[in-house]
Design a protein around this nucleic acid. Structure first.
Lengths: 259, 259
DNA sequence: CTCTGTAACTAACTTAAGTTAGAATAATGA
DNA sequence: TCATTATTCTAACTTAAGTTAGTTACAGAG
């Protein structure tokens, strides 16, 4: 875990793409891997907040990569309610490998202004020649799956207070992992309605819970800036354990992400 | 969709493994693919009900394949409650590709007596030479992911009545797809407690809901045999749509699984 | 600097689902 | 076969979260 070295390298080469930072934390990439990844994020499309990236039923022939900003994966029910099943932040693929399935079974929308790379399938296919990347993409897919499982636990078995705390911990760790959080502070541009749609709660109840988290001095959330006042306590209160994010190299004795 | 031909072939070659049946429904497999798959399921281990297949924290070097019986993927919370995040039926891999991640972040247990194949990693690696299988395994992984998303919607945004109905529809379609359901009837060896752990409900409430589904003549459930009395109505009542199971070949105009 | 729309916040009341506790039925095993 | 244990089913009561209907506070547009 050569944190200093990483830091130094980052300063030398300028801000690294979130995707590279994310995959680098878990896989050893060659220079070739890195430049291939950098190429993926080139020429992202600028999008406004709340714009559709893909809709249920479509058959995209592009892969979408979040370069900047936030997006959400969601399903709409017949009665108009929405369930968000994932928050996408920089470095996340929206739909890696969708083309294997037929049509999209859910939709994706930006939440904030965002930069999204539209990568033609052909360009993705070229990467199959880089075994390091193939493995790294598998890793990303499996972590996405693990996050979905944790989400189910959150919604199914935790009360609202725990669930909100847990989600905040997860987002913090993920943001930190791509260099977008420091000192327990990061941009959280989600409305209370969006948080509710993610956790199966109403805005009213999300508000109650946030008030309580503030009153207990666990968090501070103002104008989209979230600060975790007492990370240990929040982790404890929400039963959070970062193991499912698998942010280590899977080697024995590997250092885990320090929070 | 040459249903008759399939039927005929099945009679000729005896009962096909659930895995082959499942993948065949969605990918075109060569004879070589098929015999490689058949080899995976050879020599399964006989297991009793409620036996651990893998536990959280372990680093398995085998891939587990369900050959017969039911299993569940679950997470245990600090207060002892359990959230089931998947039901595994014949033809399902328990942990395809786990070795890419480090340790397991959840546990898997049999629910009934079962036959589980323990496939050494080396044997799995040999399959990378068969592109048809690689793609079929990707398909299976992506469908697992889609099932997780549907599960979140179920727990987050549907009430108990809808959620139970939805789960029943899903299990029916999956069982039918591997040839273990006919005429809207299949073995459902889950206790009400297990159903509750899957949907984030108490046994008391699961019981109430099942009573209602029976009273409305939507289902019949006795001694682990479930019959869907009115599939259309159940689908309607629970907002079920099988699209997320992606049981077609992804080609235009492909027939979807008829229910 | 005011207008306007979105988001945050409150309060009072309702309800779906949880809790506790126990009876009635199956299974299972000695 | 009986005893034991697991599972299903009920009833009475409690509570976390939903609903409805607002008010307040911003932030951005003009």
């Amino acid at each position: 875990m050569p944190a200093d070295a990483l830091q130094a390298e980052r300063q030398r080469s300028g801000p690294r793409s979130a995707l590279i930072t994310k995959l680098e934390s878990v896989a050893r990439l060659t220079q070739e891997d890195r430049s291939a990844l950098a190429a993926l994020g080139e020429d992202p499309r600028d999008m406004g907040a709340r714009r559709s990236i893909i809709r249920e039923g479509e058959k995209p022939d592009h892969v979408h990569l979040m370069v900047e900003g936030w997006a959400a994966r969601y399903k709409l029910l017949a009665d108009g309610t929405r369930q968000i099943t994932a928050f996408l932040i920089p470095g996340d693929f929206c739909d890696l490998h969708v083309t294997i399935l037929g049509a999209m079974d859910h939709s994706i929308t930006t939440l904030t202004r965002a930069k999204v790379a539209y990568i033609p399938r052909s360009k993705m296919d070229l990467l199959t020649g880089l075994p390091g990347l193939v493995k790294a993409f598998w890793w990303a897919t499996l972590v996405d799956e693990a996050v979905l499982r944790a989400w189910i636990v959150n919604v199914g078995r935790r009360d609202a207070y725990e669930a909100v705390g847990h989600l905040i911990c997860e987002l913090y760790v993920r943001m930190k992992n791509i260099g977008l959080a420091d000192d327990h502070c990061f941009e959280l541009p989600l409305t209370q309605e969006e948080l509710g749609d993610a956790l199966g709660l109403t805005t009213v109840h999300v508000n109650r819970v946030l008030q309580r988290l503030r009153a207990e001095n666990l968090i501070d959330l103002r104008r989209g800036i979230l600060t975790i006042r007492d990370y240990r306590a929040l982790e404890e209160a929400s039963g959070f354990n970062a193991n499912y994010l698998h942010m280590d190299r899977g080697e024995d004795g590997a250092a885990s992400a320090d929070v």
